[in-house]
Design a protein around this nucleic acid. Structure first.
Lengths: 187, 187
DNA sequence: CGTTATCTACCAAGTGTTAGGTAGGGCTTG
DNA sequence: CAAGCCCTACCTAACACTTGGTAGATAACG
């Protein structure tokens, strides 16, 4: 398939960026991962900035699709909201990785503008999805739902970061439990 | 004073690491900041790893002192807990910087072990302080207080990260408000 | 043949780090 | 007190290596 190299590069870059960030991405290691030479990557992406942009865009697209799939699977909005933290848990399960966009949020000062834009879109996608479900669940009126959604998003991202720093996924689980106990997430 | 260069290096390195992380720290730019040459830094710190360790250690020591000062100033535990988010707000106020240890938590995979240890101590310091106040405020029994404290710490760090990604401090404030509304932080 | 995908080989810039030197202040000792 | 000495704090210059990126040749293949 002609685009399989491109896809392999995107997948490998995503994996690396989830562990080492945008700054930790480099063409030699990436090429080794994929099984080609560094210069060959330029046949698929004209620069690191454009590769990063493509990776971040693909990341929120995939996330949006997974969220939609979750909603299709668990129609009840309260139960679906309860499942939201599963998303961020998966990254930790995958070798203690974290959300690519959380990492890149830390790196904003060194990010090309196009990459930054995609990172922000990731947040928008999550907040919009959470907001929609909060309204559907009757847990927030449409005025406050966005703010409340952002709080959930931020809190879950924070829990992931803290758990990652100790490579301890149980820290993530207990923190999410505390969010539920406090009423930030539905019980 | 003989140690003023050392202090100047530590202060400049802290500022940079709060904006670009450990990976974004480099001896040339750091030396320029301080007004000396890169090689001169080695007179005060034997390696980047040891500089990073000293910076991170100083960071949690300063934070611990600030938290103690806050407690001395605001003896009432509930009111003191309410003020906790001020700590993380200050970093955002300082040119959209973030908590050095949140940034380094993302970078764990590329951190020397000694640096990682100091980063974890920063979390311990915050959780211990919050835990103590939660107990004093009667908001958690001593069994659950640590877990609850970690949830607050993680949520506040997450709020800071999200606000930073958009360089919008009002996003931080509204997210903290939502934490209070939800009952994660006292009202 | 021409397009697509990959290669080898290279470059300039930037990285942490080392070697070796210099200016000056304070110490000891004749 | 002066001479010698060492230590602190800084310097210039270079090292080995990594980085993103480019030029041009070479396959593979319809």
């Amino acid at each position: 398939m002609s685009s399989s190299a491109r896809e392999a590069i995107l997948a490998a870059a995503k994996r690396t960026a989830q562990a080492r960030g945008y700054g930790g991405l480099n063409f030699r290691d990436l090429a080794d991962d994929v099984g080609i030479k560094a210069a060959s990557i330029y046949h698929h992406f004209p620069s690191k900035a454009e590769l990063g942009t493509a990776v971040a865009r693909r990341y929120w697209e995939d996330t949006a699709a997974q969220l939609d799939a979750m909603l299709a699977e668990t129609a009840d909005p309260v139960r679906c909201l309860r499942r939201y933290p599963e998303m961020f848990r998966k990254a930790l399960e995958s070798n203690n990785r974290m959300c690519l966009c959380s990492f890149m949020s830390a790196e904003v000062d060194d990010l090309p503008d196009a990459v930054k834009k995609e990172v922000q879109t990731f947040a928008d996608v999550n907040v919009a999805w959470l907001s929609k479900l909060l309204v559907a669940a009757g847990l927030a009126n449409s005025k406050k739902s966005q703010q409340r959604a952002r709080a959930i998003f931020a809190a879950v991202a924070g829990a992931q970061l803290i758990a990652r720093s100790r490579s301890d996924i149980s820290l993530y689980d207990t923190t999410i439990d505390s969010y539920r106990a406090a009423g930030l997430l539905p019980k």
